[in-house]
Design a binder for these strands. Structure first.
Length: 462
RNA sequence: UCCUCAGUAGCUCAGUUGGUUAGAGCAACGGACUGUUAAUCCGUGGGUCGCCGGUUCGAGUCCAGCCUGGGGAGCCA
């Protein structure tokens, strides 16, 4: 007999047919005559109830059906006599694939703290919460590819290992095959990377953007979606050392086109989740974050507020409250400032544009005022910056001058600069932190709980 | 990295001005129960009080250092 997944089974209307299901036991209840097993196979947050007449089965086997054990069950799909489920399986054959010692199995029928579950990340996908989060995470990854594919964007695979340290987005992890107990040195005492695998110093990427631009200036519209690494000593609920990022890059888009895409993209993902993950979202709304569904609905049914950095600073200066960090034109906005704008002043997602060039990256297009660049940050409630992007500087001379002003390694960027020499084009792009998006959509409080195996300072277990 | 709070049973926590044998709820285990929904009822077992020093007749409790975790900040997606 062919195995049927529980998700399919629960929507089945064919009562009285023989079925085969396989899954893990969530709970077992019952008396000495009859037992009820809640079985879950990960296909849905819902369990199928297996009803077994104890007299039909080996007593030792029945005793070994405990929370966490794995079963293969054959039976008849019937209408449930009890409340709480429409259908259930009247079992006539049970095979115990894997026992699960109840004295040492850490997952209980009761709820657990997120901190405890993080310590057992190998088992936490078996909980309702992480099952829901991981299914939603999958759906979002799929929706991202679907969205871009339907709009003619090409998925570009940018390198994970990079020889450039000019991306300027934070500390990098080194990649080397050198013997760390016997490092070859130059005469001046610096490391001789000519002996290393690539013959030069290499790192894990902090962004695929620069290579993404190369793709956009050939294919028109591209996106990247891959892992990204930051060796920052960041210990917050919003940071990971290894995370996934989506970076679309588009030729012939100005900053407004860029903002339109970002807003449409975010709303599409939320809408996709609401339409395709309703049971998981309902569970998270009930158990993890009460206002979740309302917040998601609110975001898709309202326009994001768009204003310039300069306008934002004026609002903050007029605000009747004390700031821990001073507000002033030219200073970067602090978390408290962004939170005020998003969560109190506008109470909507906000897109800030045209930041002072001194606080933004070298590749952003310089405005004619000589002071600001065509940057955009999308700020979300509870998350802060979820997207950072810009129109890129397409003028060779202005870009080169900016690189020299900032003292960046010009010769490492020769290939990037050549795109501005050979058929340059106006273009734009942005980066979306995948896990930050999942945090928003699931209502989870900590980014470490929306990735299966989080990598953070002092933590690379599993 | 800085500020702050915490670490006691498998989990979540209580533990008085330092005092004799460290507690509760849940879980687990044993038993009862003919249909349960985080089942219910009765019973049982379970502790290197994060680690290492110090003060003291005596430390879960006080002090110092370290480790781990939470929250906030910085860095950023």
């Amino acid at each position: 007999m062919k195995r049927i997944k529980i998700k399919e089974l629960l929507s089945s209307t064919e009562k009285g047919k023989e079925v085969l299901v396989k899954g893990w036991v969530r709970t077992k209840r019952g008396s000495k005559n009859i037992i009820f097993i809640a079985l879950n196979d990960g296909s849905t947050i819902n369990n199928i109830q297996v009803v077994a007449d104890v007299s039909l089965f080996d007593a030792e086997m029945v005793k070994n059906i405990t929370t966490g054990s794995c079963l293969s069950v054959q039976g008849i799909l019937v209408e449930s006599e009890g409340k709480g489920q429409n259908v259930e399986i009247q079992a006539f054959s049970i095979e115990l694939y894997g026992t699960c010692d109840s004295e040492t199995y850490p997952l209980q029928k009761k709820g657990h703290s997120m901190e405890f579950l993080r310590e057992i990340a190998h088992l936490r996908p078996r909980t309702n919460t992480f099952g829901a989060v991981l299914r939603i995470r999958h759906a979002m990854a799929f929706a991202i590819h679907k969205y871009f594919n339907e709009r003619g964007f090409y998925y570009l695979h940018t390198p994970v290992i990079t020889g450039s340290d000019a991306e300027g987005a934070g500390e990098m992890f080194h990649v080397t095959t050198l013997d760390l107990t016997n490092i070859p040195l130059n005469k001046d005492g610096s490391v001789d990377f000519s002996e290393d695998f690539f013959g030069k110093q290499t790192n894990l990427t902090v962004s695929g953007q620069l290579e993404g631009e190369l793709g956009a200036l050939a294919l028109g519209e591209i996106y990247t979606f891959g892992p990204t690494f930051r060796a920052e000593n960041s210990n917050t609920p919003r940071h990971l050392a290894e995370f996934w990022m989506i970076e679309p890059e588009m030729a012939f888009y100005d900053l407004t086109d860029n903002m339109d895409l970002a807003e449409d993209f975010l709303k599409y993902l939320i809408r996709y989740a609401l339409e395709n993950c309703s049971e998981d979202l309902q569970f998270l709304n009930n158990m993890i974050n009460k206002g979740l569904l309302d917040r998601l609905q609110f975001v898709i049914s309202n326009d994001f507020i768009r204003l310039t950095y300069t306008e934002a600073v004026e609002i903050l200066e007029k605000a009747s409250r004390k700031w821990e960090y001073p507000v002033g034109w030219g200073r970067d906005l602090q978390a408290e400032h962004e939170r005020y704008l998003v969560e109190e002043h506008f109470e909507k997602p906000v897109i800030l544009t045209d930041y002072p060039k001194s606080i933004k990256a070298f590749y952003m297009k310089q405005n004619d005022d000589g002071k600001t660049v065509r940057a955009m940050d999308v700020l979300f409630p509870g998350i802060g910056e979820i997207i950072g992007g810009s129109q890129r500087e397409e003028d060779y001379t202005r870009l080169l001058n900016r690189i020299r002003e900032l003292g960046l390694p010009e010769k490492d960027l020769w290939w990037y600069l050549e795109t501005r020499k050979f058929g340059t084009a106006p273009h734009s792009g942005f980066g979306l932190g995948f896990e930050r998006m999942i945090v928003f959509i699931t209502g989870m409080a900590n980014i470490r709980d929306v990735i299966p195996f989080p990598r953070t300072p002092k933590n690379a277990e599993f």
